[in-house]
Amino acid sequence: MTRPDPARPLLAFHGAGRMFAGRSSDAPRGLAPISLNIAAGDFVTLLGPSGCGKSTLLKLAANLLEPDSGHVRWWGRGFVDAGLAGHRVTLVPQDATLMPWRSVAANVRLPLDLERLPRAQADAKVDQALRKVGLESVAALRPSALSGGMRMRVSIARALAAGPELLLMDEPFAALDELTRTALDTEMVHLCERSGLTTLFVTHSIAEAAFLSTRVIVMAADPGRIFAEYPVDPAGPRDEDFRLSDRFASICRDLTRLLAEAAR
């Protein structure tokens, strides 16, 4: 696979937006036209209140919605032209959304099955992906036998098995308890660094955004739009020390202030 040109954004929104007709009394819902570039290796977090169009933005990035203004480009091209049948973009949905009737391994193999990859090759990739999230021992179990955190890890393994370049995550850890969430955040950072993944991550949590991102997009509602971009200085490793550092605290403070301004 050719490495993407760093000068050309992996994902670009050119005045792209999508509004939904609400009742006349309601404020317009959805996402007003925005422009946004995401380069290879970025970890971009969308942070904002409910109704600010975060999920709409992610759905546009996943080509699950068509924009009603502007356009979205992947590797400078349209979704189909960019060879996305090759699974260069994948999604980790809000819930684990696993198939309860199949084993963990079969769930992780899903994108490869859809691609019609030969079984032996697929199984090797599944093993690798399960090892990355530390779940190789439960490969044969059904999802119902796992805890919420483990199920989410299976969902991440499924995304990794596809060998994506762009990972879209829609509040993946929102339903988990704080400890599990923190552990998974740390794992995510390491996974993305090691695999050279580009990630677009939606969250409600300021701490999560501060910990994970190279860039935080603070969004405002009514109509959904980008309020501010906040680059996070990538210096130093993202580990427990970072979480306890003054720098982390000051990032959280800045983001809190921006969110408050966005809500005004």
């Binding site: 759905k59 996943a62 080509n63 699950l64 996305l84 049948a85 699974h87 973009v89 994948t90 999604l91 949905p93 809000q94 819930d95 959304t97 198939m99 009737w101 199949r102 899903l110 994108p111 099955d113 859809l114 691609e115 596809a162």
Partner: peptide, 29 residues
């Protein structure tokens, strides 16, 4: 059908047949 799974199948450009066989039928069982 789990709407999240349906989205996942769509993003990964599953064919009509794949969606039927791997998602719709097991969900309906």
């Amino acid at each position: 059908i789990d709407p999240g799974l349906a989205d996942y199948f769509r993003l990964h450009r599953a064919t009509r047949w794949q969606t039927l066989w791997r998602l719709r039928l097991p969900s309906a069982l």
